[in-house]
Design a protein around this nucleic acid. Structure first.
Length: 550
RNA sequence: UGGGCCGUCGCCAAGCGGUAAGGCACGGGGUUUUGAUCUCCGCAUACCCAGGUUCGAAUCCUGGCGGCCCAGCCA
């Protein structure tokens, strides 16, 4: 995976970092952080940020913290925190230290007092609606709040009483005093603190005053000694505010915020709000539904950490809005699984085949390679008997051109076994093929047949030895490349995103397969054992099909 | 339409004034007891457009055009 020498590709952020290192900007130190809000599960877009932040730290012997940006208690929870920790580790990264924005509520408060003392912040009594009205518009300047020139002592007193819980939610906010005429709306006296009488998952009822993202993030970065604060493009307009706050305060350092484009993947959605809606409204079975672009979903689907990291490396880091095709992700997991997944045989939609000239009670244990190119992956035994099951699709009464599988009167190779010939087709009254009567050529085991060419090879399982399995096949969750561009993204939900095959049979060697075990079912697809799987009834998810150049 | 950012092959993406890397996708040949893998070959006289500077421009300048983001007491 990655590049052969494991050299990460050049990108503008790594260039900035190398440059800073070259001029000894931070005494040779590089410190990054991955700062999710614990309000949902991580998705593949987060993986991009994780690989970048942890990657840059690793490449430069630096540090990378995991920081939960938990300043909005209404949407956050311990469960989400735990899922995030698990997913980051599963992806293969270990943070230097774990922090929470809420760890900094005290210093954050003290810094706010400093700002008030410097006459750079004030307590405002305008309502949310009034503040919006006063803010102006994209083309019109805002106007100053009547409270903007509230005496420092008065703001100090009010701010203290806000913290003490004297006022109801929304009564006052703390605002930075910057410039109501700024062309950058983020600089029009942004709100720094709001009153929220909400239980916080970590600080409980200690606070009824919570700091806003813009105020919190820069200071948290500075407290942790972050050198490069990497975030997505939509925060570009916030950078002047990030810098303004740190410029006005005597913080330990002044990190550099650098923005990059967020990941956009076709045929899915990537906003936590929408993913949460899919879960809450039961359009999927949970955050880890294999159709979800969440780390947990991809994991359950059968993706490997390597494949996701490879994907993040392949798509690169730029400032350009890019739409990545599913094929790019699929290529990554195919490359990994082709290399590492043991092969096995499974028949998704069985068709019964009786080999008439094969002895009734005979069972042969045939030896099959677990990987066609990698001897070190070993072999396994596969029972062969008189009645086998093949794929319905591998037989055709009216074969299309170039069909190289079984036809009436034709021969085909059973993978790892004999060449068989279709002697008779049995149909039901409706004309459906329900069984095949074949003969086998006993000298073709491990040998080419003499005097003729048999081009097709098909997979099979022994009827009496195979194990019933439920196979879950997935298609994209949405029917439009960009569901969010539609009037409502749910309108483009794909009604056929899940297909369940409950009559499939897998070879006997899968008997004790544990969840998260991955296989290539030869000629078919890669599958991964699901957490719903039981000894009596195996359940597997199709991760991705094999390339098919038919 | 105020501000910010972006525009190199169908989709990503290197390139940083010296004459267009790579990946995905696609097309074709070879090998193959997986129509898989592997392998070989092909795939931008061209970098949003128009001018300009230069011996030389995707790279610099000017002017257009197109796209994305911002008016939460969300992050």
């Amino acid at each position: 995976m990655s590049t052969p020498e494991n050299q990460p590709s050049a990108n503008f952020i790594r260039q900035i970092v190398s440059n800073d290192l070259a001029i000894n900007k931070h005494n040779g130190k590089i410190a990054t952080r991955f700062p999710p809000e614990p309000n949902g599960f991580l998705h593949i877009g987060h993986a991009k940020s994780i690989c970048l932040n942890f990657g840059i730290a690793q490449e430069n012997q630096g540090t990378c913290n995991l920081r939960f940006d938990d300043t909005n208690p209404e949407k956050e929870s311990i469960e989400f925190m735990q899922s995030i920790e698990k997913d980051v580790q599963w992806l293969g990264f270990q943070w230097t230290a774990e922090y929470h924005s809420s760890d900094y509520f005290d210093p954050l408060y003290d810094y706010a007092v400093q700002l008030i003392n410097q006459n750079l912040a004030y307590v405002d009594s305008l309502s949310a609606e009034e503040i919006r009205a006063y803010r102006g518009s994209l083309t019109e300047e805002g106007k100053e709040s009547p409270d903007r020139n509230r005496p420092i002592a008065k703001s100090l007193d009010l701010f203290k009483r806000m913290r003490e819980g004297e006022f109801e939610d929304g009564k006052y906010v703390l605002r930075a005093k910057i410039d109501m005429a700024s062309p950058n709306i983020n600089m029009r006296d942004p709100t720094l603190y709001r009153i929220r009488r909400t239980h916080h998952h970590r600080t409980g009822g200690d606070w009824c005053l919570y700091p806003m993202y813009d105020y919190t993030h820069c200071i948290s970065d500075a407290i942790e000694g972050i050198t490069h604060s990497l975030c997505t493009l939509e925060f570009e307009d916030h950078r002047p505010l990030y810098d303004w706050i740190l410029d006005k305060l005597q913080t330990p350092c002044h990190p550099q915020q650098i923005e990059f484009a967020r990941l956009q993947l076709e045929y899915t959605v990537m906003s936590k709000r929408k993913l949460a809606q899919l879960v809450i409204e039961n359009h999927v079975k949970g955050w880890d539904d294999p159709r979800m672009p969440t780390i947990a979903g991809l994991r359950r689907r059968g993706f490997t950490p390597d494949s996701i990291r490879d994907f993040c490396e392949r798509i690169g880091i730029t400032k350009k809005d890019a739409w990545i095709k599913m094929a790019a992700l699929e290529s990554c997991i195919r490359d990994d699984l082709n290399e590492n997944a043991p092969r096995a045989m499974a028949v998704l939609k069985p068709l019964r085949v009786v080999i008439e000239n094969y002895p009734d009670e005979q069972v042969e244990l045939l030896t099959a390679k677990n990987h066609p190119q990698k001897e070190e992956m070993g072999t396994r035994e596969i029972p062969f008997s008189k009645i086998i099951l093949i794929e319905q699709e591998d037989f055709s009464l009216v074969p299309p051109p170039k069909f190289k599988r079984l036809i009436e009167g034709g021969e085909v190779r059973l993978r790892g076994a004999y060449v068989i010939k279709c002697e008779k087709v049995i149909t039901d009254t409706a004309g459906n093929v329900i069984e095949l009567r074949c003969s086998y050529d006993k000298v073709t085991l491990g040998k080419k047949p003499e005097g003729r060419k048999v081009k097709g090879v098909i997979h099979w399982v022994s009827e009496q030895h195979s194990i019933p399995a439920e196979l879950r096949l997935y298609a994209p969750l949405f029917t439009e490349a960009n569901p969010e561009a539609q009037s409502h993204f749910l309108e483009t939900l794909n009604p056929n995103s899940l297909e369940i095959l409950s009559d499939s049979r897998v070879e006997a060697s899968l008997a004790n397969a544990k969840p998260e075990t991955r296989y290539q079912f030869e000629r078919c697809a890669y599958f991964c054992v699901d957490s719903d799987s039981r000894a009596e009834k195996l359940v597997l998810n199709r991760t991705v099909s094999l390339r098919d150049s038919k």
